[in-house]
């Protein structure tokens, strides 16, 4: 299994490195987006902002945590569906199904490169922020943040499986994935605190696992909160995992069966 895992990572590295310009543009994009938030923060100034009071930080630090860890949210909820779609499009899905290894582990392996890339992206954001923009993060709490990231992945992967099921059946990007992306951007506290939202929208934000992820990550990296202090968002993420993961697994199993009955595995 380890050998196969490495084969998937190597394949995706080979594919990605064949798009060199794309790689350079991604790096530039990261620096530009970070700079935008840095300058917005300078406009807002260093005066104490009531919405950021409980994070005890300025807007740049707040936004940095949002953009640095956001890739884990999108990857865990979208990458399985993206992999299915890519295999359908490249005509390789049936070839994978013919392998003696069951398809679910193969699809999980297909997403690993994206996670590796997300780690690199997050580290690039945090280190650039540290060395270029002079941010002050609680680096001693990085392992707590890593634990939250793992929980975030588990809490979202159920949604990822539901999205992948849509892709298998409809041969299209899941409408749920699009909706989830939009709603997460708006409501989960990626770019601004959810306290800004009206009450009814803030209630909606509590229905998203990402809200708890950002809450926990900011408190860990900006305030040095311990795991005990973070038990509320951690329990919320565990609850999402317990509820969504089985639903995702069942829907994925059903979708594979449906595609095999329909004879549409290779169609896109």
């Amino acid at each position: 299994m380890l050998h196969q895992t490495l084969a998937f990572i190597r394949r995706d590295f080979q594919t990605q490195s064949s798009y060199r310009l794309d790689f350079i543009m991604q790096l530039i994009g990261m620096i530009v987006s970070m700079s935008i938030f840095y300058f917005i923060s300078r406009i807002l100034g260093t005066a104490v902002n009531p919405y950021l009071l409980r994070y005890n930080t300025d807007y740049f630090h707040f936004a940095l945590m949002g953009i640095a860890f956001y890739p884990f949210i999108t990857i865990s909820s979208n990458s399985l569906a993206e992999s299915v779609h890519e295999y359908q499009y490249s005509g390789t899905l049936e070839v994978l199904f013919l392998s003696p290894t069951p398809i679910f582990p193969l699809l999980v392996m297909s997403t690993l490169w994206r996670y590796c890339w997300a780690v690199a992206e997050t580290m690039f954001y945090l280190l650039t922020a540290l060395f270029v923009f002079g941010t002050t993060l609680d680096w001693q709490n990085i392992f707590t943040a890593m634990f939250i990231v793992v929980l975030t992945i588990f809490a979202n992967v159920g949604l990822g499986l539901i999205n992948a099921s849509f892709s298998l059946v409809t041969k299209r990007t899941s409408p749920l994935a699009r909706l989830l992306g939009l709603v997460t951007n708006l409501l989960a506290g990626v770019y601004f605190p959810i306290e800004v939202l009206p009450n009814w929208l803030r209630f909606c934000s509590y229905l998203l696992p990402a809200t708890y992820s950002f809450e926990a990550l900011r408190r860990a990296m900006l305030q040095g909160a311990s795991l005990t202090e973070l038990r509320s968002p951690i329990l919320a993420l565990l609850a999402f995992t317990v509820i969504l993961l089985p639903i995702g697994l069942i829907s994925f199993k059903y979708a594979i069966r449906w595609a095999k009955i329909d004879g549409s595995l290779s169609q896109y």
Partner: peptide
């Protein structure tokens, strides 16, 4: 369509051999 077109023939076979 049943290969990874951005990869070489050798890289494709290497990947499927691992599978």
């Amino acid at each position: 369509r049943s290969f990874f077109w951005r990869l070489t023939a050798y890289q494709n076979l290497q990947f499927f051999a691992s599978l």
